[in-house]
Amino acid sequence: MPLRNKVAIVTGGNSGIGQAIVLALAGQGAKIVIDYIVDEQAVEGLEAEIAKLGGQAIGVDADVSKPAEIQKLVDAAVQAFGRLDIMVNNAGVETRSSILDTTEAQYDRVMDVNLKSAFFGTQIAAKQMIGQGGGGRIINITSVHEDWPMPGNTPYCLSKGGMRMLNRTAGVELGPHGVSVVGVGPGAVATPINASTMNNPGLLAKLDAAIPLGRMARPEEIATLVAFLAGDGASYLTATTIFADGGLMQSSVGL
């Protein structure tokens, strides 16, 4: 198993892409800390599923919009498993609101959960990795919308654009310490965050038609990429984003 003896944290790890990432990393031998703020039963189910596979995982209730709660996640990883090798900043929300109708509260929530958590998740994880020695991998789940406009979802695009420069700048700063920082930019993925599209046959057909591969991604397809980036095969990647969008960015204006 390529990630045997590695320890990973996955924020927002009990649903959607995060859940798939947890299972992919555990399937390759990593010990996992699953961050969540709701649905503890889902976390318990994941822990049980991983245990049946011979792996180890613990759930930690932490609000990653607060740096102290991110520190709690890192401390839990070190206490339970002795170190931290892989940090996946995956937690994210959106408001589907435009520049004209976004409230301050909506703006703050999206920026705190998406960008602030990734910034301090990167910082706090990197400090742990540097202190313990041996380097590490930080993987930030961004979006095609770090580079590709989505009218009517402005705060989300702004947060993901910020993550683009976080990956680039932190990757340069942390490279000399042996810590790589890479973004994964999914396109449309069949997860609860896209429920409004998936539940509307007309919108779904329009979206599928705009994707050269003809369909939304499965969460497992994004998770497989994250697992690759956590392993030795991605040892020379940093300060960049890998897009997994089925070709969407090259074929259509924002939907």
Rank of each mutant, 00 (worst) to 15 (best):
P2Y: 10
V10L: 07
T11F: 06
G13K: 10
S15N: 12
Q19L: 12
A20C: 11
A20E: 10
A20V: 11
I21G: 03
L23Q: 13
A26G: 13
Q28M: 14
D39K: 14
G45S: 14
G45T: 12
A48W: 01
A51G: 09
G54L: 03
G59C: 02
S65L: 04
P67W: 02
A68K: 10
I70P: 11
D75N: 14
D75V: 05
F81L: 04
L84D: 02
L84E: 05
D85Q: 00
G92K: 02
G92C: 08
V93T: 15
S97L: 12
S97T: 12
S98F: 07
L100M: 12
D101H: 09
A105C: 08
Q106Y: 11
Q106A: 14
Y107V: 06
V113Y: 13
L115D: 08
L115M: 08
L115I: 02
F119Q: 09
F120M: 03
Q123V: 15
A126R: 03
Q132H: 13
G133F: 13
R137Q: 13
I139V: 01
N140G: 11
N140F: 03
H145S: 11
N153R: 02
P155I: 08
Y156F: 09
C157A: 15
L158W: 10
G162D: 07
A170E: 02
E173G: 03
H177C: 12
V179G: 02
N199M: 09
N199H: 11
N199S: 14
L203P: 07
L203K: 15
D208C: 14
P212S: 09
R218W: 06
R218M: 14
P219T: 05
P219S: 06
D232H: 09
A234D: 01
L237R: 03
A239T: 01
T240W: 05
I242L: 11
F243T: 15
L248Q: 14
